[in-house]
Nucleic acid binder design. Structure first.
Lengths: 340, 340
DNA sequence: TTGAAAGCGCTAACAC
DNA sequence: GTGTTAGCGCTTTCAA
């Protein structure tokens, strides 16, 4: 069992405050006393109790992070970036995986609030959640990532410009001579779906090409819907021809590619493919996939810095205005797209 | 700001204990009283303060997890498995990424202990750490995963049988007629390196083939050492010929494959390759890689269950004996190995 | 069925 | 420089 300040004080015949002063490196302590206490603390391996300190100081030095799936490399990298910043300030990360489930997300929000986290990073799967609004209103520092909620109050967020991302992807295909371009996106009620679809439309319109609604399919970010959406597109190809497809999420990209292969077509000869967030860790994918990417570690770092800023502003009556940081995504040109 | 029991008690003209009883669903409360209090709690969105409760009860309902790299799918899956179990019991996970750094691991151990975590899951990169021994001795429930430490006391662990894994891999190659088999492993001071190397040796010896030390290379789990080890093997191939290589870690497998390709050789025609923990999420790798695998989610679940068991045993003077759970890994045969 | 009070381990204002 | 004390929000024993 660990010793407490009280124990040490009693055993050393000093007062609790003296011990506390030494532990916290305050300067108003006699050198002799400090040495004696220090020696004792080392010898008996005293470790301060952060829980008691948290209760007293009303701050836990913890940051909650809720993400839909910890196995996605995207989120792993973002967390790594956040950790790099906040661990310098001795903040710890309480991580929760919502399994893409709105209800679990809601319960986790509750649980994290009970734990009195100092700040929250949320990749929400519940764009219309009310719980998170309560938390923001109660003064908790919240930063959204990846996907934006529908909220009536201003909030902080760090993410890529999804509309711009789609424009870049489509412009690449247009530049290669493609004009009939199909599109598969995730749920359009989430900004990661809606904004990416919007960018697709805008890019075509700006090029003077009218959008063919029959070439648009909506999935749910998972691989199997990428597969089924692609199959539908292929089946209708007689009436609704296309030479390229833009798949706006990693796992759906994989599904679409499999569908193309299983229908005996090849990439990019028969269909050019632009993916999203595709990570080819081994560099062994064949064909290698042209894809939109984001700098996840950088996003994580910006989130970490924003959090630290918000937490340092806490004493002030009014913090600086909320900000939405939009990062530019980038296009990785590989061999899954070709000039037509 | 959140209300406290005291606030509620005052505003309702009751005692703190009564409110506490209602909050905690104790039964010795008058129905009328309960209704009044409940209504008030709901209306004012009272949320209990877990920090105060933790201090009082000397248990935080948190589990610390330290892993070397959160971006490895292996660890992501294990965490997911742990979370699935412990979240049912309202435990939260405090996650730390040690970046494969012994010193960061040590500091995190300290920090987690200050936070008074109830239990710890550790994929250590510091087989001879003394800090963790202190923690075990102080009564903290610790479960090791992936890699085992050198400790003089019994401890809990869940991991695969690394020696058996290597035997399975080598036996597969032997069965295909290979007799000259090279081997690349991670640091042999860690069990994930040492035991895998041991299995390699044993499998060959059991087959009556003497081990050629020149065909063994030791890397550090990272991709670049996989590459450089493979290059050395290829360079010496004139004097030390081999027809197959066993690479006992995922990222090193990728590195080795790249080295083989950049030397103008092909898999499996020139060299057969068996990897370890290779995850081909897209199913697009070419060649597809024959690899040893482990059931990560299952490991995570067993860890979670073991933790819950240890925590429930805490009141007892003497818990049940420590256990090392060895899971069987399995071989995934793909197209990177062929009959000779 | 309800209330009063002690105490978990710590910080900090105040007194000496 | 050092000690005393109140109190952070909660649980729980004991008394009423």
């Amino acid at each position: 069992m660990n010793k407490t300040l009280k124990d040490v004080a009693r055993e050393l015949n000093m007062s609790i405050s003296t011990i506390s002063r030494v532990v916290n490196n305050k300067d108003n302590v006699n050198e002799k006393t400090r040495d004696i206490v220090m020696a004792y603390l080392e010898k008996h391996k005293y470790t301060p109790n952060r829980v008691a300190k948290s209760l007293k100081e009303n701050t836990t030095k913890t940051i909650g992070i809720i993400i839909p799936d910890i196995c996605e490399v995207l989120f792993g990298q973002i967390i790594k970036g956040i950790d790099q910043i906040v661990s310098q300030y001795d903040y710890s990360i309480i991580l929760v995986d919502s399994h893409e489930d709105k209800h679990k997300e809601e319960r986790c929000l509750e649980l994290l609030y009970e734990q009195r986290i100092d700040a929250l990073v949320l990749a929400t799967v519940n764009s219309n959640g009310s719980k998170v609004l309560e938390l923001i209103n109660s003064g908790l520092a919240v930063v959204f990532i990846d996907n934006l909620p529908n909220l009536s109050v201003p909030y902080d967020a760090v993410l890529i410009d999804n509309t711009a991302a789609s424009k870049m992807a489509i412009n690449h295909l247009l530049g290669q001579g493609h004009t009939q371009i199909a599109c598969i996106v995730g749920s359009t009620s989430e900004t990661t779906g809606g904004d990416r679809l919007l960018g697709y439309r805008l890019a075509l319109e700006e090029a003077g090409i009218s959008v063919n609604e029959n070439l648009i399919r909506v999935g749910n970010y998972k691989e199997d819907t990428g597969y089924s959406c692609m199959e539908e597109l292929i089946r209708n190809r007689g009436g609704q021809p296309f030479t390229a497809v833009y798949v706006a999420a990693e796992m759906m990209t994989f599904g679409a590619i499999k569908a193309i292969g299983s229908h005996g077509m090849s990439i990019p000869e028969d269909i050019s493919v632009v993916g999203f967030d595709v990570h080819d860790r081994a560099g062994l994918m064949l064909p290698s996939i042209t894809t939109m990417r984001q700098d996840e570690q950088q996003i994580g770092k910006l989130v970490g810095e924003l959090l630290m800023k918000r937490l340092s502003e806490r004493e002030q009556a009014q913090g600086s205005p909320k900000q939405k940081i939009l990062m530019m995504p980038f296009l990785e040109v590989k061999s899954s797209t070709k000039q037509i």
